[in-house]
Design a binder for these strands. Structure first.
Lengths: 352, 352
DNA sequence: CTGAAAGCGCTTACAG
DNA sequence: CTGAAAGCGCTTACAG
């Protein structure tokens, strides 16, 4: 005698609810009590129920969706590389999408989440993207593992996330400059709203305050993580009566902009001014002079994100929903003691 | 009033048969008269009937596999961006893989091709990769559309490929330098075996020969598309008795290496030496000085590759299996007339 | 939030 | 070979 057919009704009977209720859970409907949903999901999982749809098509290759807001930075590509590496090692397919490349129509999150489910995907990784809590809910309701990497906005407490120790990194950068003897240290940040950017700023401020150095408002600016931000900020800084002797840029791209503008104005780095970047991408390594930079373990961040998905998928109980990987300062040739602490005028004469 | 729902019953009514009969045809049953079957099939096709199953899963979401050998270059990322853009516009999913990230086990091409087929993928795009003819055959046998972008080795004649007019680009770069008055022009190429690299070299040679300028062996070198190649080549060039007054680098990364080494040796660009890159990535734009470079339509190449797949997929008859997109020279600030055509010694004195 | 009842669209079993 | 009738499994609309 064959086991009774694995229908939706059979699952319902097993859980002790009605068929319509199971139907709702399977389709990610809203109107199911949390507790009921959990019991049904458990039974669905235990019995291995597959909808007629799923039954028809062969069990698909395990796959994970990866969403970037853009691929136009060394940062993104490195995180992607980390994901790809882990994916290859664990036989996962990676379905990539880039929101900034999306043509007009933004995808409805409910629809997207349902499709993920229908196609049997293992989860989704969202990188540097402004995924709102509303969008995340569509996934949580369907129990699709989601991991965000360096979210623009801090994610709701129950969402898994991967980041780097930005605060400590900011502090390390500023401390390094302070130890070299700098007192006038500028900070050029990323988007003011971005979580990581704020953390770096606060690390910088913490270091200054610990050293008894006041935080000067004109020394702090913000902008997108692009070299143009560094160029613009550097122009303003050099126009100050009392320009800084060192600059801490919140990304290597920004730092490269600073470097370009410095060269244009004949400010030598590190002789006339010290410069620290953030990210530790090859850009920093290959620039001239090679940039002192706070290195983020970007590959590792990508790997961790995927490994979070895999662990959730395998039903592992995960206690901490946030992984923060260590940054570390890599000292290269763009930082040196200040030329003369007393003579800011000397710096500007040099520039003429 | 909306059109009546397109059910199996509706189709039946239209043909003048019963629903069960249509059901049999849809499911490929035997017990239907040939003539009836044909009429039903015609109606099915005409009305565009889709079973609830087909209707539900948005046609198993069309997807294309994209294979890169590596993602560590502005070139690759830009091509990928082009693919992503077109994919978003045409509602395709992109399944990414990177061969250099592949853990030890190389995937068996037969297996890979079969999986592609099983999962109903639309095709595969292979970028800058050394995909052998043997591997391609596994796909051709299964009628899976494959498009290669800038293959390392020229693909078999019947494979679709997308590239840029490398020869013309090389010629344009060298011509530009010749027109400025340069006669001692070096070429730093990419991997000697790479098709695109050879084309650029031959374009360069053609321009020199047309101008009656001999091709000097010591002025021509090759290496990976990385900045270190530029550094090394530049060192050798500057050590020559008769160093060139201009350098044409086969990629922007290589050119950036040349630039760095020039700065280290106090060779000013373009005053002491002119420099032309290739690719036209933002690296070239943002460098200091901004680099004159042969721009490749990388986004467009990505888009074209995908559009090739889509056209093949839709059964379109395609006459030409090779698309070659135009490159064009973008003159920026790294090129200028030679300082003194007569005094190579002058250049070297300058460098001391 | 839940489920009895009705409904939907397709398929099956079988009489003709 | 065909189709009326019964059946299946899931979903919907809605009363409680």
């Amino acid at each position: 005698m064959r086991p009774p057919k694995l229908t939706l009704a059979a699952v319902a009977k097993e859980v002790g609810v009605s068929a319509p209720t199971v139907s709702k859970v399977v389709n990610g409907r809203q109107d199911v009590a949390e507790e009921t949903r959990n019991r049904v999901l458990a039974a669905l999982h235990r019995t291995g129920y597959r909808s007629p749809l799923q039954r028809k098509s062969p069990p698909a290759q395990q796959a994970v969706e990866v969403v970037f807001d853009s691929l136009n930075s060394a940062y993104s590509v490195e995180v992607l590389n980390g994901i790809m590496e882990h994916a290859a090692a664990s036989q996962m397919e990676v379905i990539l999408s880039v929101t900034s490349r999306q043509s007009a129509s933004p995808v409805d999150p409910e629809e997207r989440a349902q499709r993920l489910l229908d196609e049997g995907r293992s989860g989704m990784i969202v990188v540097t993207s402004a995924f709102g809590p509303g969008q995340l809910k569509a996934f949580q309701r369907r129990r699709i593992p989601v991991v965000v990497v360096d979210p623009l906005n801090p994610p709701p407490g129950d969402v898994f996330s991967v980041g780097a120790s930005n605060w400590a990194g900011g502090k390390a950068a500023a401390s390094h400059l302070l130890e070299l003897g700098h007192r006038r240290i500028a900070y050029i940040g990323g988007p003011a709203a971005a979580e990581c950017s704020q953390a770096r700023l606060h690390g910088y401020m913490a270091a200054l305050m610990a050293a008894g150095v006041p935080v000067v408002e004109e020394y702090v600016s913000a902008g997108p993580f692009r070299s143009s931000t560094g160029v613009a900020a550097m122009k303003s800084l050099l126009a100050l009566d009392d320009p800084p002797t060192a600059v801490f840029a919140a990304s290597d791209s920004i730092a490269l902009g600073v470097l370009a503008e410095a060269r244009r104005q004949n400010i030598r780095i590190p002789d006339d001014m010290s410069l620290v970047g953030f990210d530790g991408t090859t850009q920093a390594e290959e620039s001239l002079p090679p940039l002192t930079s706070v290195s983020q373990p970007l590959l590792e961040m990508g790997r961790s994100a995927l490994s979070f998905i895999l662990r959730q998928r395998s039903g592992e109980e995960i206690d901490s929903r946030r992984v923060e990987l260590a940054t570390h300062l890599v000292v290269r040739e763009s930082t040196a003691p200040p030329r003369t602490q007393q003579s800011p005028a000397g710096l500007r004469r040099q520039a003429d």
